[in-house]
Write a protein that binds this DNA or RNA. Structure first.
Lengths: 333, 333
DNA sequence: TTGAAAGCGGTACCAG
DNA sequence: CTGGTACCGCTTTCAA
């Protein structure tokens, strides 16, 4: 008995239960404005179960004129435990507020292209990490019904709420710390991997800011995440004559530290090394790695901001500085 | 001049262009079955641009009866560079085939609940990593129109295509390698962090399988990803009298190796240590960490499987073993 | 308490 | 070449 498994609709449920589609809708949504007799309810639920009925989200939100979907572009780069944890908390918190979080796989779409693609889904809110979104993009999203657009990035965008995560603060911490430890010739690792510029540029800038007006000099150090690249950099270290380095993050720091040690350089005596992100990793190195601890916003807070914005779409865009940075000094500086 | 930014529809475009909605649809979709005069096309495009018109995906797929959405549950645990890379490749490849990948934030939904939630979106295909999906769930998804359901996990599920990623193979590799190096009292780290059981259990099982029938003994070692936990384990190492350990993955391996070294144990003389996943990390340790290199399926291949399955939904479910595991011996074993 | 019917935004058939 | 129109699945008045 092979049935063609045609997707059951509410009409099928209605037919099987011997009621109208309206009644089905009332029962399955527990509509309070209307009283349905207990026997009817039972029949409807029974029929729905039997058919394996699942409502059609698109049809529903088409009719309703809005959805509860919060859209985020899926990050294209491997993402650390920090951001992962933040994302989980956010999803959980938004889930509690009855939103559905969807990460949209935006590959190769540029700026406004991407915004348009997102807009086709008519999300009620859009959260955009990084700087992928311009004023134009915000406009597109809003025009297509997004009641809240929130950017998580270095600078605010007109018309959107902003969680300002200024990674310059990370660099500032690191720069000030190194200077305070008496270092004056300071290298800053800039990863060659693409997609990281959004973080690496501001971190570099931050170091420059912290050292501006002092007698310290900053040297930019391009570095790919490979042993060869690190070895190359280490090999010319003595001629660079740097006495400290801010290595972008703990992983690059470990890579470079290893290479420097293999070159016979002592840490921290010859070179002070500091990373960022405060990964477990750094505590396990010898010497223990100093790092800049980065505090992301709480997912719960962001969820509440989203909810607030959705409920009051006319409100002034909120702008929060949310990136806490503080040095954790260990043994490498 | 504050306009109420009512989302423009194709009717608005039609009105502005002075044509019918049908014509708008034809023009914007480049419908080949129908010829529209060049001036008309221009007027339509012009109007669409001016209004900032973005089509409504839900309405479109409602009418069409299907979407091009490939849905994946968003992973709840921090995910390494391996899986990240795989995901990117997959998104890219599916994008080329004109599918849209969406990661659905499934928090706290259990089994069939989750499947039903996914089904509401009427995705054309669903890719499920891990073992979160049962036969029932597959049925729900298929009944609601999913033309392909693919599981990426330890075992196949009835009715779904399967990319069998049997992490037991990872454990087998490690176990056989350690045994081959003459080790007989072998510890296996089992992370205490929840969400990792899906990988850690099979990896442990694999070691047991590799050592079954030999004179080697396997000891299960619960370990949390903290320095304290590692120190506790290392402190009682001598009484455990193990001469080798498979540390679940490279990160746990580093954590444990550090603790063992701090206890004065020599690696590999006193204890052989092997990790898994072949992270850059391991190459930077001293001694260099031996590891099990894990080969995930290619995102392109999976994309093609999905496409094939979507085009021929009646076809027999394909089952592929796709997890390659091979030992990379370095200095720690 | 229940049913009939309109309509959300698009698409595609059929007429003109 | 273009317009009218039915319909996808669901919700929600409005009547009965």
């Amino acid at each position: 008995m092979v049935q063609i498994p045609n997707t059951p609709t509410s009409a099928d449920v209605a037919r099987l239960a011997g009621v109208s589609r309206a009644t089905v809708s009332y029962v399955l949504n527990n509509t309070s404005a209307v009283r349905i007799s207990e026997p009817t309810r039972r029949r409807v639920h029974e029929a729905a179960r039997e058919l394996g009925y699942v409502p059609h989200a698109a049809a529903r939100s088409l009719r309703a004129g809005h959805s509860r979907m919060v859209l985020m572009p899926a990050p294209a780069i491997p993402v650390g435990p920090l951001y992962s944890g933040f994302l989980n908390e956010l999803q959980w918190a938004l889930g509690r507020l009855d939103y559905t979080v969807v990460q949209y796989g935006t590959v190769g779409l540029q700026g406004d292209e991407a915004a348009r693609a997102w807009a086709e889904l008519r999300p009620v809110a859009v959260l955009v990490p990084g700087a992928e979104l311009g004023t134009q993009g915000v406009r597109v999203l809003k025009r297509s019904g997004a009641r809240a657009v929130v950017t998580l990035g270095p600078e605010r965008v007109d018309g959107a709420h902003a969680l300002l995560m200024d990674h310059a603060a990370v660099g500032q911490c690191a720069g000030a710390h190194l200077h305070g430890r008496g270092r004056r010739r300071i290298g800053v690792v800039v990863p060659e991997e693409s997609g990281l510029e959004a973080y690496s540029r501001p971190r570099l800038t931050g170091v420059r800011q912290a050292l501006h007006g002092t007698d310290a000099a900053v040297t930019e150090l391009p570095l790919a995440y490979t042993e060869e690249s690190a070895a190359r950099l280490a090999a010319k270290w003595r001629e660079l004559a740097l006495d400290a380095v801010f290595a972008y993050n703990d992983e690059y720091a470990m890579l470079l530290m290893r290479a420097l040690q293999d070159e016979g350089l002592r840490i921290p005596e010859d070179v002070a090394v500091i990373g960022a992100d405060d990964l477990m990793l750094g505590r396990l190195l010898r010497p223990r790695l100093s790092t800049v601890h980065v505090e992301l916003p709480s997912g719960r807070d962001l969820a509440e901001l989203v909810d607030r914005a959705v409920r009051d779409p006319g409100g002034e865009p909120e702008v929060h500085r949310v990136l806490g940075a503080s040095v954790v000094r260990r043994e490498s500086t």
